[in-house]
Design a protein around this nucleic acid. Structure first.
Lengths: 350, 350
DNA sequence: GGAATTGCCGTAAACGTTTCCAAGTGCTTG
DNA sequence: CAAGCACTTGGAAACGTTTACGGCAATTCC
């Protein structure tokens, strides 16, 4: 409510400008600007009276004009493959919140796979509008990213698709560690034949999780049976196909590790169709711990990625870069933890 | 790729400005601006040569400056309560796509329930930055919205929380019709005791769906047993509580209509916990048909709202308003359809 | 007691566009 | 053949900020 319905005195046309405020407060626009930007060189008294006028008339600075004049627009761009998604949603949410707290705005740019459009990089897409960008799961190659960087556009990569190139600010989750925990959990339950439905081949997340998976097996003195590893595209239908394949094996696995929740849930569906009881006939572990993990029944054991935190961290990293602060660590990995729920149990044979 | 790594000749410092292009093309900046904005009054030949230069140097106009000069920034704001959400996600996605197609940008502003902040309406929050806004499920009262409108800020409401005030552009789904379909479906299956878990009391969606629910019952010659109606907050935990209450009734319902997918899924969980088999012991219908409806097992029968379409429609409505076009219909309702899946069947007693 | 310093503030020049206005062509028209 | 018109184009003034620069007091210093 406030303000809204009580605006009797508006000595200016449309919206207040800095000049209106200046006139009202009896100072110059330069002073108003200084007050608004918390510059030190303005007398306490003057500052107060300007702030008073600002409060009374509900003024907020025109970001476009500020951008023009100072270069800092207070807006940052965000590209991502998919906005309606149980995985990206929380990251996006974290980014939005973190920016909001700093009174900055988020400009959303879904990439929609138009990688090779005439306009080259999304860079132009934001240039002049945003101060920097967060690239989620970018399609651009390491080289392209480096070029972008060399051109002086500040950005950070969140959840890199390829192995993160050095020299580029990048935040991701500890894929390997999470995968290892998940696998160890299954091993501890007594599983010996553990199938895996990996993500898309070549992706950083896939490779890293594979490393963790293999490492856990190796520590238990086992080598991965190549027949028990199937790749996917991270999506449920392919997860179901993969599950069919694994469960049709002459000697099927007693547990399946899905490299994300989507494919793991695909396994759940296939198992149900085949009349397998979860977790008694088959244990399933997912990865990401999205909202889906808890909506599904039985609730999915999954490796939790701190998704919102990933977004927030991306923002603070970007902001440090924008402020030209010496950035100590360009690479950040956030920890992952296994959340045990109802889809894992000892194998039936035990 | 394109462009990115082939930028040999850049006769200007940072990024190309309209002036650089003008110089390169040997025309005035006014002419370049005309070309860029598809104004008719420029010679074919001139237009071509300017476009040529633009293509070669990959130029895109500075939106901030444009906003300053012309008032149109090409950005529109979007407020919504929650970005990481199976319901809002697809709407947001629809909005983003629709804007992208028109080469406009989306500025995201999660409201985070700061309704009564000093800065009055989010209006100030966007003013000077955006050309207009889409308000999703706004917390503002009808009066507040009207005030906002009177101040001349263009906006449309998508999925109004309260009954949509007239005179305000507004797009929603046909709640009543969808609820009626769902109820009729249950009636046709033979259910006679049908429980309902409504949404938050007072909300437009709740009231409308209730109307449809009651109407279907009435047509079958039945009146709603007040004991079979429980309100919720649209979220799963409260959905589960409500389900407990309904199923603990001396004469429990044989079917439950959840007013959104969240609460319906809550019912599924409770049923499972109680050892009830779905759909044999209990039929369940949801509303919204979010991603969750198909991830859950058994897959949820639900009333489909065209979520992405809701967003797209909001955009086109807003754009018409921005262009000062005579807007024929300020209220738009998109149709809903029942999607029958695996959680509905005839009651056991039949 | 003059000079140097400090604290505060205003003037004005940017920033990159759009758009009004005027002016220059080359035609058509009466 | 002068006047009028249609079509192109350029000049320049906005738009709302930020900020370098300079100026004026009031202080401090030697």
């Amino acid at each position: 409510m406030a303000q809204t319905d009580t605006q009797p005195e508006q000595p200016f046309r449309g919206r207040a400008t800095i000049r209106d405020i200046a006139d009202l407060a009896g100072v110059s626009i330069a002073t108003v600007s200084r007050v608004l930007n918390d510059r030190p060189d303005v007398a306490r008294e003057t500052r107060e009276s300007v702030l008073q006028v600002v409060r009374e008339h509900g003024f907020s600075t025109n970001r476009g004009a500020r951008g023009l004049s100072s270069g800092r627009t207070g807006m940052i761009g965000l590209t991502l493959p998919l906005v309606a998604d149980a995985y990206f949603g929380p990251i996006l949410s974290g980014v939005a919140e973190a920016l909001h707290e700093r009174d900055m705005r988020l400009v959303l740019a879904p990439t929609l796979h138009e990688h090779d459009r005439e306009v080259s990089l999304l860079e132009r897409l934001m240039r002049g509008t945003t101060d920097g960008a967060i690239l989620m799961l970018p399609e651009e190659s390491a080289d392209e990213l480096r070029t972008l960087q060399r051109q002086g556009f500040p950005f950070v990569v969140v959840d890199p698709r390829e192995a993160p190139p050095d020299g580029i600010a990048c935040v991701s989750a500890m894929h390997a560690s999470g995968a290892k925990q998940a696998t160890q959990h299954l091993l501890e339950l007594g599983h010996r034949r553990i199938g895996a439905i990996a993500g898309a081949p070549g992706w950083y997340a896939t490779e890293e999780r594979l490393i963790g998976f293999r490492a856990a097996l190796a520590e238990a003195g086992m080598l991965l049976d190549p027949g028990l590893l199937v790749y996917s595209d991270w999506r449920m239908p392919r997860g179901m196909e993969a599950a069919e394949r694994l469960l049709s094996l002459p000697n099927p696995p007693t547990a399946i590790f899905g490299f994300n929740d989507n494919v793991a849930i695909g396994v759940l569906h296939v198992a149900r169709r085949r009349g397998l009881s979860i977790p008694d006939d088959l244990s399933v572990v997912g990865f990401d711990d999205t909202e889906l993990a808890t909506t599904v029944t039985p609730q999915l054991t999954s490796v939790r990625q701190p998704l919102a935190e990933l977004g927030r961290t991306g923002v603070s990293l970007l902001l440090r870069i924008l402020e030209r602060q010496r950035v100590d660590a360009l690479r950040m990995e956030l920890s992952t933890t296994l959340v045990v729920r109802d889809t894992t149990a000892p194998p039936r044979s035990l």
